[in-house]
Design a protein around this nucleic acid. Structure first.
Length: 734
DNA sequence: AGTTGGGGCATTTTT
DNA sequence: TGCCCCAACT
């Protein structure tokens, strides 16, 4: 027997070895889902059932795709070429490049990011004279995305679907938006799936090609698929008899937490009906967490109805462990202090900070913890900050490259035509737009034409001519010397680099550094088009992971991760479960919140500390908070209560905090006063450039500029910020 | 063209 | 309470 199979337990082996016919693998948290998926992939190749390019393997994130690629290569002992392994979007983009003309695009189409999408839709709506005050473009975007999620092209949207926006003009706006995309030779993220599904639906010969091509299909996180992804998969999987439908979906209905993004939990619940003769394998042996953690999570999730049903059991013999802590606190400040203290003590006892995470329900909760951790000097990282590709300088540079690649990319052209400043103001842009619209030509071509006449003042006219001539030249550089040289030349000759060099702001050097990084990254790609696709689809987060850091992130962001110690703060009615889910979605969305709680608890290997506060500041005002109903749903024998909840029944308003435990140690009065430290009296000391200072919120930093009472400070653990001197202390006094 | 101040808004987010 | 976006200044 191959040794990669020997490492599996019986149920995992069944999931790997059941190669023929539809298979659903219900993989509970920590049951070796990724191992099964990658081993199955390798097993298909090793057993000779298919060649690498005959397997279609789909994930949701680039990270998951990368991981699968690496692990398959590891099992096989060599890298594998020619795989159809990637995210839904990347795979669809690849396919769509082959068939673009079937939906009115050219193979060279541009993939727009969220920002471009919204700007384009705004333009469309303005042109259609929609009152954007009354009907924000965001709302229309959301509707269009939901339609795309459900596989609805404008033609497939029925009047009954089109009732809740801009006096039933939603469908018309959607159609106009799609026309604009086509005119720009562009596709948004939703289009990648939508167009490909539409092609497979309406072009049997294309579908038949793919039926022949893919003998096996593997899908990760099936519970997160939306309808259009489901249609796409089903079309590809439902091969005509006698060819077997070898689709294997791996997922966990208990971890479906993305319905608000269009995911349909019904997809996984319905699997057996969709695919004749489907087999279901349950992975229930958990190798990650201790017995109490599993017991707490299982007890909680058992309250949900409409599950496929599965019970985690400890897969290791040493799985006994500490009970899940449920800590009651007076207010959110005290909660942050409690978490900080425990992390400090963990660190003192040799615990790695990389193995600690604080998982919150909503982004704004991270702040109180950040503030506390800065004061304590504990290094942390907030997952999900600004991404590399989202930074202004990168987006600008990308826009230059997009115009280089495709002159008709109006969105990109518009972004850079006056960056750096070329003296093109509102009137100049209007003239340009009018010419482009009148002649039905791209802005780039209109710009070339307009410099021939005298519609523009001399300064912008000359600058614009230079830009257009520049692009012609740079395209030749691209053809002759490659995209990296071309990119460097573009940034240099367009004056873009010079713009940042002349910038006196403290961010400028970092931005120039980022541009260099961009050029470096380009070197890894064959050509410009390949690179642009990569950036559009593979939004890499260039977080520098160096050094030991604890992590703060949302529960959503934590799915798929694991840590020795997990803090789960803010378990209060209205916050978790969130008010909105209580108000709107009824029982269904409450169940999704419960799944989110389940995801949170099951992230912990050894220690889970859940907490709630009796008082929380909401939009500035303190208001009392009731413990989350989820706390009552945890099996009593799996948890250990601390603070008020230790001696009193839950769900009462915890007005009296007299119970034992850690929190009762200090008198309440001192607790309440402690946070007033913020209101420090104005500091008479003045600061000098280069001086080390301390800020309650941002921590230590160095003074860059002084203007009266306003200082510019480069903080060690935060960006450079402008702050008033009264919020600063000298580092030596901090 | 850049700054400033008022008003509206305030889960979760990947591609 | 705080942030972000837009509109109206200078």
């Amino acid at each position: 027997m191959s040794d990669y199979l020997a490492k599996l337990n019986p149920e995992q082996r069944e999931a790997v070895e059941t190669l023929d016919g539809p298979l659903l693998v219900l993989a509970g948290a920590g049951t070796g889902k990724t191992r099964v998926l990658t081993t199955r992939f390798a097993h298909i190749l090793m057993s000779g059932k298919a060649r690498p390019w005959e397997v279609l393997a789909v994930t949701f994130t680039n990270k998951a795709a990368r991981e699968m690629r690496e692990r398959v290569a590891h099992i096989l002992g060599r890298p594998v070429e020619g795989l159809w392994l990637g995210t839904f979007h990347a795979l669809c983009a690849r396919m769509l490049r082959r068939h673009a003309e079937l939906v009115g695009l050219k193979s060279s189409f541009t993939i727009l990011d969220a920002d471009d999408q919204l700007r384009l839709l705004k333009q469309v709506m303005e042109a259609e004279r929609v009152d954007l005050k009354r009907w924000p473009a965001q709302g229309m975007m959301a509707i269009i995305q939901r339609w795309k999620d459900r596989g609805l092209t404008p033609a497939r949207v029925t009047p009954a679907e089109d009732t809740d926006y801009a006096a039933n003009r939603g469908r018309a706006l959607y159609e106009a938006y799609q026309e604009r995309l086509r005119a720009l030779n562009a596709a948004d993220f939703g289009d990648l799936l939508l167009h490909m599904t539409e092609i497979l639906r309406t072009h049997p010969e294309v579908l038949a090609d793919y039926h022949r091509a893919f003998r096996y299909i593997l899908v990760d996180e099936y519970q997160d698929t939306n309808l259009v992804q489901y249609y796409w998969l089903r079309l590809l999987a439902q091969r005509p008899d006698p060819q077997p439908q070898n689709i294997c979906c791996v997922g966990d209905d208990d971890q479906s937490i993305y319905s608000w993004r269009g995911a349909e939990i019904e997809n996984i619940l319905r699997f057996e009906k969709d695919f004749r003769g489907a087999k279901i394998v349950r992975l229930e042996a958990n190798y990650r967490s201790t017995r109490p953690i599993l017991g707490a999570a299982s007890g909680l999730i058992a309250r949900n109805t409409g599950r496929l049903g599965k019970t985690l059991r400890p897969g290791r013999n040493d799985a006994d462990g500490e009970k899940v802590r449920v800590v009651s606190l007076w207010d959110s400040e005290e909660e942050a202090r409690m978490v900080g203290e425990r992390i400090e003590s963990l660190r003192r006892s040799g615990h790695s900070l990389n193995e600690v995470a604080i998982l919150v329900r909503a982004g704004f909760q991270t702040r109180s913890f950040e503030e506390r951790l800065i004061v304590l000097g504990l290094p942390y990282r907030v997952v999900g900050g600004l991404k590399f590709y989202e930074r202004a300088e990168i987006r600008d540079a990308m826009a230059y490259l997009r115009v280089l690649n495709q002159p008709a990319d109006d969105l990109a052209f518009e972004r850079i035509v006056n960056t750096p400043k070329r003296g093109l103001g509102e009137s100049g842009m209007r003239a340009l737009h009018e010419l482009a619209r009148a002649e039905r030509i791209p802005l780039h071509d209109a710009a070339a034409r307009i410099t021939e006449g005298d519609a523009l003042k001399p300064k912008p006219r000359n600058a614009l001519r230079e830009l257009i001539q520049g692009f012609a030249r740079w395209r030749q550089v691209n053809a002759k010397e490659g995209h990296v040289v071309a990119a460097a030349t573009v940034l240099e000759e367009s004056g873009y680099t010079a713009m940042w060099q002349a910038d006196r702001s403290p961010e400028a050097p970092g931005r120039l550094e980022n541009l260099k990084e961009l050029l470096r990254a380009m070197g890894e790609f064959q050509n410009l088009a390949g690179f642009l696709d990569h950036v559009a689809l593979v939004m890499e987060n260039d977080e520098n992971a160096e050094g030991e850091r604890l992590q703060i992130m949302t529960l959503h962001a934590a799915k798929g991760l694991e840590f020795d110690t997990v803090f789960l703060p803010g378990w209060e009615e209205g916050l978790f479960p969130s008010q909105r889910s209580l108000d709107e979605g009824g029982e269904k969305s409450l169940e999704e919140e419960r799944r989110l709680a389940y995801v949170g608890i099951t992230r912990a290997r050894k220690h889970a500390i859940i907490s709630h506060a009796a008082n929380r500041r909401i939009y500035g005002n303190w208001s009392p908070a009731i413990p989350s109903r989820f706390l009552d749903e945890l099996p009593e024998e799996m948890i250990m209560r601390e603070g008020a909840s230790a001696s009193r029944g839950m769900r009462d308003t915890p007005s009296v905090f007299g119970g034992g435990g850690l929190l009762a140690r200090r008198p309440r009065v001192i607790e309440a006063g402690a946070w007033e430290v913020k209101e420090r009296p104005a500091h008479s000391a003045s600061f000098a450039r280069g001086e080390r200072v301390f800020h309650d919120k941002f921590g230590y930093g160095t003074v860059l500029q002084v203007e009266d009472d306003r200082l510019e400070v480069a903080f060690d653990k935060a960006d450079t910020k402008r702050v008033l001197d009264r919020f600063l202390r000298k580092a030596s006094e901090a």
